[in-house]
């Protein structure tokens, strides 16, 4: 009998793990998406319905397109703000001489906190009547703001996401800044370049790749945003903050229990996000 090559043996544990926690659940997800499985009725009562769930989502689901639109607004506004703010703080940090470590430790606090706790904390902070935000604004004579009202809830959710995830951008961009060689900067200074010219023509192009990786990672992550919305608004008021993942959750678990339909939703989300995944893979490979 032919002996199994040793390298198969070495990669076997990783392969088994991959099959168990990634490949099998994904295949299972595709399978479930073609059934009418409902958790409350039980596994045995399910029926194979082919693409009925997908057709329902595209044609009948009242908030499919709206939730997609809200998610795009959420991703584009929050991630671009995080990038700009992250860049400003990272640049400031790279020029800091004292207390740098203390500052870094402080700014990563939002990032390391549990998101569900953050959202509950912010729900209290933003409460119109007894929240700290309005109390502080009241001290400078700014009237009560309805932070979680119909017109403002999405902006508040974005604000919380920016607060939570800007530190991630700061750390990534700061690391990129630290890794830049000093020679091009010295040459530019010798040639009389201004600080703005140095930033746009040297700093930015040189750290572009890492910035893109950070941006893609954040885009993938914020496309999946759930905890913040769940804790703050549960998608409301009305459907003001009904992001895509919230819609999936509501369909599959929040009393609707349409697990089959929710799986179809999840597959659509996966397909929308695939270009981002492949871009990230390419970026990491070319680095």
């Amino acid at each position: 009998m032919k002996k199994m090559p040793a390298h198969y043996l070495f990669i076997m544990p990783a392969l088994v793990l991959l099959v168990l926690i990634v490949i099998f659940p994904t295949i299972f997800l595709y399978y479930i998406s073609m059934t009418n499985y409902d958790m409350t009725v039980g596994w045995d009562a399910k029926r194979f319905v082919w693409f009925e769930n997908f057709i329902y989502l595209f044609l009948d689901e009242p908030l499919f397109w709206k939730s997609l639109g809200i998610t795009f607004i959420f991703v584009s506004v929050s991630v671009s703000c995080e990038l700009v703010l992250g860049m400003i703080v990272a640049l400031g940090l790279s020029r800091m001489n004292r207390s740098k470590r203390l500052f870094v430790s402080l700014i990563i606090i939002p990032m390391v906190c549990t998101p569900s706790i953050i959202s509950l904390m912010w729900k209290l902070i933003l409460n119109t009547e007894y929240g700290v935000a309005n109390y502080l604004l009241g001290l400078v004579r700014i009237g009560n703001i309805n932070w979680l009202g119909t017109g403002t809830a999405l902006a508040s959710v974005i604000l919380v996401d920016i607060w939570e995830w800007t530190p991630f951008m700061v750390l990534m961009l700061y690391a990129a800044l630290q890794a830049l060689p000093e020679e091009p900067f010295e040459a530019a200074v010798a040639d009389g370049a201004t600080k703005i010219q140095i930033f746009f023509y040297i700093t930015l192009p040189m750290m572009m790749k890492l910035a893109l990786i950070a941006l893609t990672l954040r885009m993938i992550d914020s496309f999946k945003v759930f905890d913040t919305v769940y804790g703050l608004t549960q998608g409301g008021p009305g459907s003001a903050t009904e992001v895509f993942s919230m819609r999936i959750f509501r369909t599959g678990f929040q009393h609707s229990n349409w697990t089959g339909r929710a799986s179809a939703f999840a597959i659509i989300m996966l397909l929308i996000m695939s270009p981002l995944f492949s871009r990230l893979t390419r970026l990491l490979r070319d680095r």
Partner: peptide, 8 residues
């Protein structure tokens, strides 16, 4: 006639 953020 409830607080304005009653929707959440």
């Amino acid at each position: 006639y409830a607080p304005p953020d009653v929707g959440v």
